[in-house]
């Protein structure tokens, strides 16, 4: 169920401001690709174009193409809502639905898309929570509110919620930036396990994290403030961290700026 993403000549605009310029890259299936770069370089903005979440922001638009295997996400007639069922997303801050129990949170995506069968839902809850390494911690309190969990547990609940609709790709936008080190470690372990089923793209401001979890790394940068962000280079994580092609990448990795 994991799919490849091919991005070609992608530009992102906020109204007239060009936020990201001319990105071309391939994201391999069943692997973890990390996006790194200084803040404001457009890596989160770009991530959102991979499931058309940027369209939620008024005035945001893109040029170029994003292919999910054979499907052009921006082709005419493609429905952004269906795109997001195939390409799920986990956000910076854990955001479980406050009015719902843990159980209802996990199956929110299924239920709101019309899945009704009790047995299917029960199964989906168990599989997803197990998939998110949360089952053992919450199996006795599935009916309790999701907001009662710790930050790290909430984030894993959000991951369970995202994988419950069985997407092909999982986008993660700095999923650990609001978490403590132990919860971060749990999420990183989880990302490692999930990559056998999903294509994963993770945005992180933490280079050690990128080095730890990702197979491939993409470095984004911007020429100057007010200029659009660009993809500087993408390659195997080993190579990017040890022997990058571009000078800017090396400077960033070695901590000389950013």
């Amino acid at each position: 169920m994991a799919k490849r993403i091919d991005v070609k000549d992608l530009n992102v605009y906020y109204s007239s401001f060009k936020a990201v310029e001319d990105v071309t890259m391939t994201v391999e299936p069943r692997s973890v690709t990390a996006f790194i770069g200084p803040s404001g370089c457009g890596k989160s903005t770009f991530l959102r174009t991979l499931n058309r979440m940027h369209e939620v922001i008024p005035g945001a638009r893109v040029e170029g193409s994003v292919m999910l295997d054979d499907l052009d996400l921006y082709a005419k007639g493609v429905d952004p809502v269906s795109v997001r069922r195939s390409v799920g997303m986990v956000f910076q801050r854990p955001n479980p639905f406050p009015t719902m129990s843990i159980y209802d949170n996990v199956i929110a995506g299924l239920r709101l898309n019309g899945v009704k069968g009790r047995k299917d839902l029960d199964e989906a809850v168990e599989t997803s929570l197990k998939g998110a390494n949360l089952w053992n911690e919450v199996k006795d309190r599935l009916k309790k509110p999701g907001a009662g969990l710790s930050g790290g547990q909430q984030q894993r609940l959000c991951i369970a919620r995202a994988i419950a609709v069985r997407p092909q790709v999982l986008l993660m936008d700095e999923p650990c930036s609001a978490l403590d080190p132990i919860s971060t470690l749990a999420i990183e372990d989880l990302v490692n396990e999930l990559k056998s089923d999903f294509t994963i793209v993770i945005v992180t401001h933490n280079m050690q994290q990128a080095a730890r979890v990702s197979d491939r790394t993409a470095f984004f940068n911007l020429a100057a403030t007010g200029k659009p962000g660009r993809l500087v280079e993408i390659g195997d994580t080993q190579k990017i961290f040890n022997n990058p092609i571009e000078r800017a990448t090396e400077d960033y990795i070695s901590g000389r700026f950013g």
Binding site: N51, M53, V56, V81, S82, V83, R84, R85, S86, G88, M89, V90, F91, R93, N95, F97, P98, T99, A108, G109, L112, N113, C158, R161, A162, V165
Partner: peptide, 24 residues
């Protein structure tokens, strides 16, 4: 964030409003 979480699950806008925003 709650609206975004719902959209990211492939839930349509009106469903998001009636099932997530209004109950909250």
């Amino acid at each position: 964030e709650l609206r975004e979480a719902s959209y990211a699950l492939g839930v349509s806008k009106w469903r998001t409003i009636t099932s997530i925003v209004l109950p909250t």
